[in-house]
């Protein structure tokens, strides 16, 4: 199954490299929002709570702008049927999850240093912050990949993706904001452990449920 999932990921990556649809749209949204935030702030210093909230708002809405694309593209170009006829559901899900993970990883790699530079609010343990970001990518992708698969089969794809994602993402975003704020306040690993438990458990639950349900979403 892993080799099939990697084949699907590499196919999506190659397709994306040639069309640059998802990466362009996610970067455009991320950088535009970041620029607006940094110009609005000017020289003023943000409190850690506001800084963490702004950061995750930028990441969340950038993700919403393109993570559904991974399945929508298959349905709109009519290639989903060919994919369904050639392989099982599970490699498709994990291939798409890997692709979304990569897109979000690239976004965070570019947005995070720029955000810290523009807002000038960063203090704390860089390793801890990177760990939260890494868990945040997995968490966001574990939720958005299955939602993307559901909305790709509907007629109101764009709007529905944000609407369906919001209630699932809300508790996740609140924890991510709280954990990021604690890092900015120079908290230690042990002070962050309740947040880490949630951030590690969330993708386990989401991926297990997605793994069990995706077959019905994809084929029925």
């Amino acid at each position: 199954m892993l080799s099939k999932a990697i084949s699907i990921f590499l196919k999506d990556f190659r397709q994306e490299f040639r069309t640059r649809y998802a990466i362009n749209s996610i970067m455009l949204f991320g950088i535009t929002t970041l620029t607006v935030v940094s110009f609005s702030l000017g020289e003023s210093n943000l409190p850690p709570k506001l800084s963490a909230t702004l950061y995750w708002i930028i990441i969340f809405f950038s993700a919403m702008s393109s993570l559904a694309h991974v399945f929508v593209r298959e349905e709109e170009s009519g290639t989903a049927m060919a994919l369904r006829l050639h392989t099982e559901a599970e490699p498709v899900f994990f291939g798409k999850f890997l692709f979304n993970f990569t897109v979000l990883f690239v976004l965070m790699l570019i947005i995070t240093p720029l955000f810290l530079l523009f807002t000038d609010t960063y203090q704390g343990d860089m390793l801890l912050f990177s760990f939260i970001l890494f868990l945040g990518i997995i968490d966001l992708c574990s939720a958005t990949t299955i939602i993307a698969a559901i909305v790709a089969r509907t007629s109101t794809k764009g709007a529905l993706f944000a609407i369906l994602s919001f209630p699932i993402m809300l508790p996740l975003l609140l924890v991510l904001v709280r954990a990021t704020e604690k890092v900015f306040l120079e908290s230690t690993f042990s002070q962050l452990s309740p947040d880490f438990i949630f951030l590690v458990s969330f993708p386990i639950v989401m991926l297990t449920a997605s793994f069990m349900l995706f077959k019905f979403v994809w084929f029925d």
């Binding site: 084949s7 196919k11 190659r14 397709q15 170009s77 009519g78 290639t79 049927m81 060919a82 006829l85």
Partner: peptide, 16 residues
């Protein structure tokens, strides 16, 4: 009405 991946080459589609 069966479609394959237009941005990929024929060989890439076959291999995929």
């Amino acid at each position: 009405y069966l479609n394959y991946y237009a941005p990929l080459t024929a060989e890439e589609n076959i291999l995929f």
